[in-house]
Every structure is written in structure tokens, then in C-alpha cells.
Design a protein around this nucleic acid. Structure first.
Lengths: 116, 116
DNA sequence: GCGAATCAATACGGCTCCGTAACGGTTTTG
DNA sequence: CAAAACCGTTACGGAGCCGTATTGATTCGC
């Protein structure tokens, strides 16, 4: 299945998705937070703070703080690694999966409306 | 040209794009700023502060501040409306067009890598 | 076993953005 | 013309995130 995105189609898709996000005014994540959340849900576990920091090319406190913020919204959960208690394992949550499901639907809906 | 986005393909695309943005670490706009910028470049002019605020469902100071921030990066420009000097007309810039061109390319490149 | 190394979290000062409210400048209205 | 309406900006206090440096807990290396 192959398709040629036109340049303006790509930007229109971004426009519609980000506009819907802004207008909705619900949960709004920073670029970094979204990247972290998507990495947790799309890449293979396990996810540690250090691993996420390396993958996103940011410092560890950035990850810790993002997990704090998203943890309060129940989008992710933390657990100490029993094998090596220095590590923290980042886990998915029902709430987080739900949020990303809606986000994916938003992309798909807008892509369809572009006859893309 | 039509294609069925799968749910995970949509999220993967978002993941790759936001990850690239974060890893790059260059100009990073908030969700709102990006929505404003894309509206200015994708929707028909003229664009006023009030009009943008209504379109994005946010207050006017949000628009003013976003224009301040993006104006300093030369992504947008402001001009008084000669016809009604209360209005401010928001204009595109070369720098802004360049930024969005790169962003569009990023989406297209990542979409292609997904064989989408 | 004990010091070095590793992990995540925290402290700190600084910057940006927020929402509400007030403000000057301009135009419309009566 | 004066009062009201309108437009964008600024003021203000507060919240969130940043980078750097440090801390506390745990594990590794010798």
C-alpha cells in the first residue's frame, strides 16, 4: 500500500491535528512529553529513565519530570525494577492507551478527510 | 489516491516526527504556536489577532504572545491594517515558509519509511 | 567488605507561557 | 463631538519546564 503525500497535504494534516488538539483544550502535552509517551507505547519494553533519555537525546531529569507530569494524569506508571533496584521501569496505563487511541483516531479521521 | 492508515501506523508517524523534532533540538514551538503558524500559512489571508484567537478558541493575549515569540524568530511578521488601524495583519515570512517546508519534508520522509 | 560506579530523583535559579484584568489607541454610534 | 465599542497590547501573579549540579539508594569491582 503506497501513497504519495504532497507537501501541502502533510502540512494540512499537521494543521488539522494540532488545531483540533488546541481547540479541544483537554490534556495538552509538550512535544517532549508526547515523544516520551509514544516511545513508551510504541517501542518494545522495558523502558527505563536512562534508556528513554538516551533514545530522545535529552537529560535524565527531563524524563523524570515528564514522568511526574504524565503520571499525575495517569498516562504512565512507574515501578522499581526488582532485579536491579536502581532502575525504574516505566509502564503503560489504561488511561494512557486510551489517550493515544483517541490521538490515533484523530490523525486517521483528518487524513481521511484529506482524501489522502 | 487513497490509503487506509492503520491505527498504529498513524501513531508511529506521530512518534517518528515528534521524536525527530525532539532529538534535533532546534526551533521548538509549543502546540499552540505550531497551530497558529500553520493556520497563518495554510488558511486564506488576511489574519488578525482576533480572527486567529477565534479560530483557535483561545484568548487574544495568547495570540499576541505567540506572535511575539515567533516574530523574534522571524517566522511571522506583523503590520497595522491601513484601512482600520485598530487591526493587526499577520503576515508570512521567508523564514517561516522555510521552517514549514522542512517540517513537511519530515512528515513525508517518515511516512515513506513506513511504506505508508 | 569498601570504595567507585550507576541509577533515578531532587534542589536551584532562570525562562516561558498561562489567565485575568486593565490599558491606550482607533473607530463607530447617537 | 462625546460616549460607547472595538482591537491589540501590556501588567501581574502563578504554574510548568529547562539545564546544571548534587543527593540518596543500590550495585559492581577489586
Amino acid at each position: 500500500m503506497s501513497v504519495e503525500f504532497s507537501h501541502s497535504q502533510a502540512l494540512r494534516l499537521l494543521h488539522d491535528v494540532s488545531l483540533a488538539q488546541v481547540r479541544e483544550g483537554g490534556v495538552d502535552l509538550s512535544n517532549r512529553q508526547l515523544a516520551i509517551l509514544l516511545t513508551i507505547y510504541m517501542d518494545l519494553p522495558p523502558h527505563t529513565v536512562r534508556g528513554l533519555a538516551a533514545k530522545l537525546n535529552v537529560t535524565k531529569p527531563v524524563i523524570t519530570r515528564a514522568l511526574d507530569a504524565m503520571g499525575e494524569k495517569d498516562l504512565v506508571a512507574r515501578r522499581r525494577d526488582p532485579a536491579d533496584r536502581r532502575n525504574v521501569i516505566v509502564q503503560r496505563t489504561v488511561q494512557g492507551a486510551l489517550y493515544l487511541e483517541k490521538l490515533g483516531d484523530l490523525v486517521i479521521t483528518n487524513a481521511r478527510e484529506l482524501h489522502l
